[in-house]
């Protein structure tokens, strides 16, 4: 399958990419990892007249630990995050990076591209909403910082202006008594998840001090399940509080029926994922090492 013909532009810097976006207008699209865009172009769902390739710009792929934060260059590939010892210090990031699609896609796909696409079934936005995450965006007017909650506006819609791009993503490291877990369920490795749950808990003994619970693939954007968080906050994490949180998460989800399952099935699934993610997040917050990744047959 061939995409429609397009003009190819190779940006030498992010600034130049922004200038190209301004100059070329609405017909232009950025090419990051291409693992969503190229399939869309081959199916002719996306037909950009101009592609601006970001892959030849040096210094856009990095993971740095600095001032209690992790900094990710927008062009950092999922595989680089999966292999990064710095990223492993925030286990929920490793859960996510190591489970996206398959080896081949993780070698190409980028964290910045995933966020800027804002696919409702994407993994990164769901995970990063459980943490203090900021996107550093570069545009014609200079740079601005957008919290992840304000960045994701709707399905496939972000706060980015047409001539603006993501330069860097920063994530504040949670406190040592905080633990997170990301669990996504998918039919097989290369496909998008059917549903996913990201949980970050801060514990004091068996009591939960702070909770973030975000649901993926069950709405037009990741859904923050605030009632579910309230069910855990200040409570002992036990069968009763977890059941209440799971029920609240199920109620917060708004899944659409599709080839991956009925709405009812996804309601049930997301509850089960939240329950397991809470368990792993709690154990990690208490210092236990637990391996976790996307579940598929």
């Amino acid at each position: 399958m061939y995409p429609r013909a397009f003009h190819y532009h190779r940006a030498g810097s992010l600034k130049e990419a922004v200038a190209m976006l301004s100059q070329l207008g609405g017909e232009a699209k950025l090419l990051a990892g291409g693992q969503s865009l190229i399939p869309l172009m081959k199916l002719r769902f996306a037909n950009p007249g101009h592609l601006i390739d970001l892959n030849f710009i040096s210094g856009t792929s990095f993971i740095k630990e600095e001032d209690g934060r992790l900094r990710f260059g927008a062009m950092t590939r999922h595989a680089e995050i999966e292999d990064s010892s710095a990223a492993k210090k925030i286990p929920i990031l490793h859960d996510c990076a190591a489970g996206i699609a398959d080896v081949q896609v993780r070698n190409r796909g980028t964290i910045g591209g995933s966020l800027a696409e804002a696919d409702p079934s994407g993994d990164w936005a769901t995970v990063l909403m459980t943490l203090h995450t900021e996107l550093h965006c570069l545009g014609n007017q200079g740079e601005r910082t957008v919290p992840i909650e304000e960045f994701i506006k709707d399905a496939y819609t972000t706060a980015l202006a047409h001539d603006e791009l993501v330069r860097e993503i920063t994530v504040r490291k949670p406190s040592p008594n905080s633990g997170g877990a990301y669990l996504a369920f998918k039919r097989c490795a290369p496909v998008y998840p059917t549903a996913s749950a990201a949980v970050q808990l801060t514990m004091e003994g068996e009591t939960c001090r702070e909770a973030r619970i975000v649901l993926g693939c069950v709405g037009l954007t990741p859904i923050r399940a605030k009632q579910a968080e309230s069910a855990l906050r200040g409570a002992a994490v036990n069968e009763k509080s977890v059941s209440a949180a799971v029920e609240a998460a199920r109620t917060a989800s708004d899944p659409q029926p599709d080839m991956r399952g009925s709405a009812e099935y996804k309601h049930t699934l997301v509850g089960a994922l939240v329950k397991r993610a809470i368990d792993v997040a709690r154990r990690r917050a208490l210092g236990e090492k637990v391996e976790l990744s996307h579940i598929y047959a």
Partner: peptide, 12 residues
């Protein structure tokens, strides 16, 4: 690095 060559443009 392993890639799916149906999802990479030759120019890349």
């Amino acid at each position: 690095a392993a890639v799916k060559s149906c999802t990479v443009f030759a120019v890349q």
